[in-house]
């Protein structure tokens, strides 16, 4: 959109326009119209970045590590240790899943900070919006997490143990136990979504109020710290849920 049009918009309209999820293109397949939104495109970009970085980092590993390889090893070891420490018995099997979710969320939350800055009122060519502003993305992550929890519970406790766990510790807990499986993914999804969207809206407000000095300073908190913290919280809560399920 041009500068002139942007100038005529109110702050509220600008924010509404910024946080809206737009359809980039539509795929016609299987007799369906699959609308590919910009968040899906961003997801693909994030995936490509992660895969490319991992492949580059692990392509030539030496027995005597350099600095980058040492950091990579430390990170991977930390993820494995973290999973093992929190999910005692089969922790190492979940390390890859939790680590993947964590890496994706960190990249997805932090990447808006790398929007090329137009500066001095110039419109940047494109803006990177946080892809977790789309409730569908965070809901998908929460759904995958809760399905992982359910599958692990059935796998390590048996079908009987799975159904028995609903009436534990007391039979009247049954509705609460069932509700837990609805509330947990909802709260996971909404927490991530609300935090990132809230941070993004505040960043937009700050840019609207004072576009020159303040945004990088505030962005340090809302883009880096909050994004990292929310990724940690999401991963940690997933770990706790899985651990609780197979304990």
């Amino acid at each position: 959109m041009s500068e002139a049009v942007r100038e005529t918009m109110t702050v509220s309209e600008r924010i509404t326009e910024s946080i809206a999820v737009k359809t980039v293109f539509t795929i016609h397949a299987f007799g369906l119209e699959i609308a590919i939104s910009d968040t899906v495109v961003m997801t693909w970009i994030v995936m490509a970045i992660l895969i490319a970085l991992s492949a580059a980092a692990t392509r030539r590993m030496k027995m005597v590590p350099g600095r980058g390889q040492a950091a990579l090893e430390a990170f991977v070891t930390f993820v494995y240790d973290f999973a093992e420490e929190n999910i005692h018995h089969h922790g190492r099997k979940y390390a890859a899943f939790l680590g993947t979710v964590f890496l994706f969320l960190v990249t997805a939350n932090v990447i808006p900070a790398f929007t090329p800055d137009g500066g001095f009122g110039f419109e940047p060519h494109f803006t990177i919006k946080p892809l977790t502003r789309d409730i569908n993305v965070t809901a998908a992550f929460a759904a995958v997490t809760i399905v992982t929890v359910l599958v692990s519970k059935i796998r390590y406790k048996g079908v009987g143990g799975f159904f028995r766990s609903f009436v534990q510790p007391m039979p009247f807990m049954l509705p609460f136990n069932i509700m837990e499986y609805a509330i947990r993914p909802t709260s996971l999804a909404l927490r991530l979504f609300g935090n990132m969207l809230g941070g993004y809206i505040i960043m937009l407000l700050v840019e609207a109020v004072m576009p020159l000095v303040l945004p990088p300073v505030v962005g340090l908190y809302f883009d880096f710290f909050d994004g990292l913290l929310q990724a940690v919280v999401f991963t940690y809560l997933s770990t706790v849920f899985i651990a609780e399920a197979i304990e």
Binding site: S54, T100, V137, A139, A143
Partner: peptide, 29 residues
């Protein structure tokens, strides 16, 4: 609004998990 993005993201996550496990986690481990 609930859209098809939900299912695409689930598929994306599985693909990413599968590839990263091969490229990153299992390899480094």
């Amino acid at each position: 609004r609930f859209t098809v993005t939900f299912f695409i993201t689930i598929a994306n996550l599985f693909v990413l998990y599968w590839i990263l496990r091969k490229v990153l986690w299992d390899r480094v481990a």
